[in-house]
Amino acid sequence: MSNSAFFRLQQLISPSLPIGAFTYSQGMEWAVECGWIKDADDVYVWLDGLLESSVGALELPVLARLYHASQQQDVEAFSHWADTLLAWRETSELRAEECQRGQALTMVLDKLPDAAGWPELQQPEWREALGQTQLAGFALACARWNVDLEQALNGYLWSWLENMVIVAVKLIPLGQSDGQRVLYRFSDQLAAVTQQAMIVDDDDIGSSSPAMAIASSLHETQYCRLFRS
């Protein structure tokens, strides 16, 4: 992977990317409110479960397929996998998050000098898929910038994990050092999550994370909250 591709990947996974990632807790706010998550060990268990049941089994395999569809200029496959990911989101909050982040990333790409000229950003079918999930824009940008697929998956995985730990630090609250220890505990297993996601068959893609779905549903009517989901 070239230096420019590496640094553009860092831009895509940066917490400063203006797509509003910091405004979502994916149900964790309710999980903290009701006592499911109380300390750093609970955060690790919660996130480890999501890695196995959702991120590694659904998001990363779908991201890989969106990446290949972008490379092959296959808008039908691109739209299919964007639709598939959105259909797997169990609550209105989680679906709204997918669409809001997808639309926000599309707006960012619209304003980048080289990306603004990509034909995909001008065509309705592509834009509809891009507006359904952040993964679509992420995959398109990585394919266009020649980011290696495995590194793209690793980058997205780390970005998701870091954002969730930041959420936990704010909500529980955890100390910054506790948050870093949680991230460190995951560092040895993330590469294996990516490699497994790259060999998942189409028929095996899916998510089963009932605790997150319950927490997200209850968060929709939570009286006092900091996060949008």
Results as ranks from 00 to 15, higher is better:
V32M: 06
Q122H: 15
G102H: 08
P61K: 12
Q180R: 14
T23D: 05
E120K: 10
S159E: 04
Y184L: 09
L121V: 07
V62E: 06
K38Q: 06
E52L: 08
R65F: 00
W145H: 12
A191H: 12
P173L: 13
W126N: 05
A31H: 02
A82Q: 05
D42H: 12
L85N: 11
V75L: 00
A116R: 14
L86N: 08
Y184H: 13
I205S: 11
A40C: 02
L58H: 06
V45Y: 01
S54N: 06
S92P: 00
L135N: 07
H80E: 11
D204F: 00
L149F: 06
W160D: 04
D202C: 05
P210V: 11
E93C: 09
G35D: 01
Q176D: 08
P124D: 10
V182M: 07
A129K: 02
P173S: 13
Y67D: 02
A40H: 01
T23Y: 00
Y156D: 03
V43Y: 05
A213C: 04
S79L: 03
S229E: 02
L50R: 11
P173H: 12
A191K: 15
D188E: 12
A87H: 09
V182F: 08
A40V: 02
R228N: 13
A168S: 08
A139K: 09
C34Q: 13
V200K: 10
S229Q: 03
G27S: 08
W145F: 11
W88E: 14
W46I: 00
A64I: 03
D39M: 02
V169M: 12
W46L: 06
Q195L: 09
L226T: 12
E29C: 08
A141F: 07
G102A: 12
T221M: 00
Y184D: 14
L66S: 08
M212G: 04
Q222P: 00
L58Y: 05
N154D: 03
E59R: 12
A21L: 01
T221Y: 04
H80M: 04
S209W: 14
I13E: 05
S4V: 14
A64K: 15
F78D: 08
S14R: 08
A77F: 00
L190Q: 09
R225Y: 02
V55L: 13
Q100I: 01
W46E: 13
S217K: 15
D48G: 11
W118N: 11
W36Y: 06
A115Y: 10
